[in-house]
Amino acid sequence: MLQLIKKDIMIHKLSWLLYLGMLVFFMLFHKDIIFVIALMSAIVIMNTFYFEEDANGHKLWNSLPFTRNEIVHARYISMLIFTCIMTVVTVLVQFGLAGSLDSSLWKELFGGIFMILLAGGICIPLFYYFGQQRIVLFLFVLFMLLIIFGVHAFYYVYEFFIGGFSSPLVPADMIVISIGTVVAIACYLLSWILSIRIYQAKEII
């Protein structure tokens, strides 16, 4: 399975430089860390699926000595690795540009990871279900829209809930972030299980 994860990273090859360039560009002109982490992670994930579809990877990797469970597990772990890479690089770029790191940065990092777990969790089972069909391009657009609108919705929901929770012991933002973490992890795990079920039943054509 480790080989499948390595493959997911290797197939991007020089695209990694392009992703870095895009990330720096967004940081210079947008500076919304939640958006940058979610968008860049989504781009890498979509490209992974694109390269796979282009090379008829479903047929290739299912003919090699791997089980379908391993193929799905590897993809979900790769997604987490991509998100980690993008988060670390964003922090480094932010540090490079600003010369220091804001103490509230961790909340934005959380927001970015929350968004990608949620949007990825929704879209990846769809990629597995509709893979090998032309609808995949539509799914890429859906993924992008989820990220773009999701980031705005995240700010709105965050502000909405932050006013709703108050406790003398725990700060309101900690409660919201804790709930968000549970929701994001639950969504990702459910998506993982669903993708395994879908892929087990899939006919590789």
């Binding site: 493959k7 197939i11 390269f51 282009d54 090379a55 008829n56 990877g57 290739l60 090699l64």
Partner: peptide
């Protein structure tokens, strides 16, 4: 049909397979 990643070289392909 071809089951190859077009942007990779044969060396890369061997490395991943």
């Amino acid at each position: 049909e071809e089951l190859l990643y077009g942007d990779l070289t044969l060396q890369d392909m061997k490395r991943i397979i």
